Computed example of a mutant assay.
Amino acid sequence: MGLQYYHTTALEDWVTKFYSRLKIFRPEDINPVVISQKLSIFLREKPFSSTHQVVGRFRCIVVDSRLSKEEKREAFFHELCHILRHVGVQSMMPEAFRELQERDAKLFTKYAAIPYHMLELIDWNERYIIEQMAHMFKVTPKLCEERLTQIQNRILVNHSCFSNHFMCFA
């Protein structure tokens, strides 16, 4: 795969800098418990929908204990994004603003689960690449498939722009 044609987004760059500050450089370094501890965020599991809470300096993520290990990990990233990047109570904000925060959290989840600076560790010639990624990053195959499609699409757009000498903004 032509990763040289892949261009990161501002959010991907933000995640890479965030992980660098936390000394997260390999897939095995991505540990929700350790990340929570480093950020002084209480992490709990309870049998209800995943959520987060910020009250003054108190920050907490509650992950739905009924989910699979991989789904719990993805729920953690989603809620972590809300704590790190968003403000306000979603139930009291305009629908469009809430949707924008949710879209940001979904993208953040992909980038935090399978970060740009670790893409070079993936065997792009692996026949079962989705399974390889799911095992390596400990997330669902669905998330891996979405991230892989996103990577391939961005490379395709940027490569065709480069090849055709068009000015593209991908």
Score class of each variant (00 low, 15 high):
T149P: 05
S40Q: 09
Q90S: 01
T140L: 06
S163A: 05
S160P: 10
I130E: 04
A113Q: 13
Y111Q: 04
I41N: 05
Q101F: 00
E79S: 05
E79H: 00
V54C: 01
Q152M: 06
V157R: 09
E28M: 08
H159L: 11
K38T: 06
H7Y: 07
R57W: 14
I114C: 04
H7W: 03
K142H: 12
V34R: 04
H78D: 08
P141R: 04
A10Q: 13
R59A: 14
E71K: 01
E12A: 09
Y111I: 15
V87P: 05
Y6F: 11
K72C: 08
L84K: 12
T109H: 02
M1A: 03
I61T: 03
D13Q: 10
Q53W: 07
S50H: 03
F18A: 13
Q4F: 14
K23T: 13
T109I: 02
I30E: 05
A75C: 05
Q150A: 02
K69C: 13
S36M: 09
Y128I: 10
H86T: 05
E120N: 04
L11A: 09
V157F: 15
Y111V: 13
L143T: 00
A170I: 09
M136C: 03
K138H: 09
R66W: 14
H52G: 06
E70A: 03
K17D: 14
K142D: 14
C81F: 12
M92R: 15
P32L: 07
I122R: 01
C161P: 08
E145S: 11
Q90R: 00
T9K: 00
F18Y: 08
S160W: 06
F18H: 06
R147S: 00
K46S: 15
L143F: 00
D29Y: 08
I30S: 03
K106I: 07
F18I: 15
K142M: 10
R103G: 10
K23I: 04
L119K: 03
F18C: 13
D104Q: 13
L3M: 05
D123S: 13
R147N: 01
C81G: 08
M93F: 07
L148Y: 03
L67C: 07
E102A: 03
A112R: 11
Y19S: 10
A10K: 14
I130L: 06
I41L: 03
R26V: 13
I83H: 03
K142W: 09
F42H: 06
R26A: 09
L39P: 05
Q152H: 15
S91H: 05
R103D: 14
H78R: 14
K138L: 03
E146I: 09
G88K: 01
V157T: 11
P94S: 08
V87S: 11
L148T: 00
Y19Q: 07
L156N: 11
P47V: 12
K17S: 15
Y111K: 02
P47M: 12
S49W: 02
R85C: 07
I151Y: 00
K106Y: 15
I151W: 01
V62S: 12
H117R: 02
R44S: 10
F58D: 10
T149N: 11
G56L: 11
L80H: 02
N164C: 07
P47T: 08
T149V: 13
H165M: 14
M167G: 12
Y116D: 02
K17Y: 15
S50C: 08
R147D: 00
I114H: 08
R21C: 06
Q132V: 12
A113P: 12
H7K: 15
Q90T: 00
C81T: 02
I41M: 04
I24V: 05
R154H: 06
L107Q: 13
A75W: 14
T51P: 07
